[in-house]
Design a protein around this nucleic acid. Structure first.
Lengths: 96, 96
DNA sequence: TACAAGAGTAACCGAGCGGTGACATTATGT
DNA sequence: ACATAATGTCACCGCTCGGTTACTCTTGTA
């Protein structure tokens, strides 16, 4: 599942927690945080700290994968030795 | 790439930023944050807010995917109608 | 050599986080 | 209906975040 917003994250965490048969207190304790924090995050709090989020996801047996989006990958990422066209254009734009 | 710690995140963000030919100021501006924040995040700050992180990743054309780890998936996730054994065990543990 | 760009760091400050403990509300089960 | 568990919400508070500005240091280039 793709995570685009804090709300996405919260929904996923809640779903996963319930599937594992944990209540908010259980998860809070195992993840080393407070129940209040779990409540807020499940509600989509955008200002939660990534450190706590990562610990919580680990507790839930969940992995976070990061990847370049397919549409951009083609033009932006360069093989070693190739020219990155975006890189070139960007550098040119900076010398008016 | 799997993200397990804030340091992982920071390293990825930096690598991606450089590949796109942006400096820290560019990224900060486009992501709607400050250069200071970019510096800290690239250094692996664990208390950065997920909201800003998500905006930054979007700016970098990167997607975050979340998934149940393979090893746990088999036993923990239940098809609709099946019994989730973890769920059962957990409930039993709660009534001493 | 001199200059500029990029990156790291520092001090300051208001705002909001996250933890605690208590209470209210809503399931869930007997 | 009742008791209990689970969730949501509140007030309080110490602490740190993130933005701003300015300074340093390194690197590369004219």
């Amino acid at each position: 599942m793709k995570i685009r917003t804090a709300a996405d994250l919260g929904a996923f965490i809640r779903e996963r927690r319930v599937k594992l048969g944990m209540d908010q207190s259980d998860l809070a304790e195992k993840a080393g945080t407070s129940r209040k924090w779990i409540v807020e995050v499940e509600q989509g709090k955008p200002r939660a700290e990534i450190g706590l989020v990562l610990r919580t996801l680990k507790t839930l047996g969940v992995s976070l994968d990061i990847a370049v989006e397919r549409t951009q990958k083609a033009s932006a990422v360069s093989e070693p030795g190739n020219v990155d066209i975006n890189n070139v254009l960007n550098s040119l734009k900076k010398r008016p």
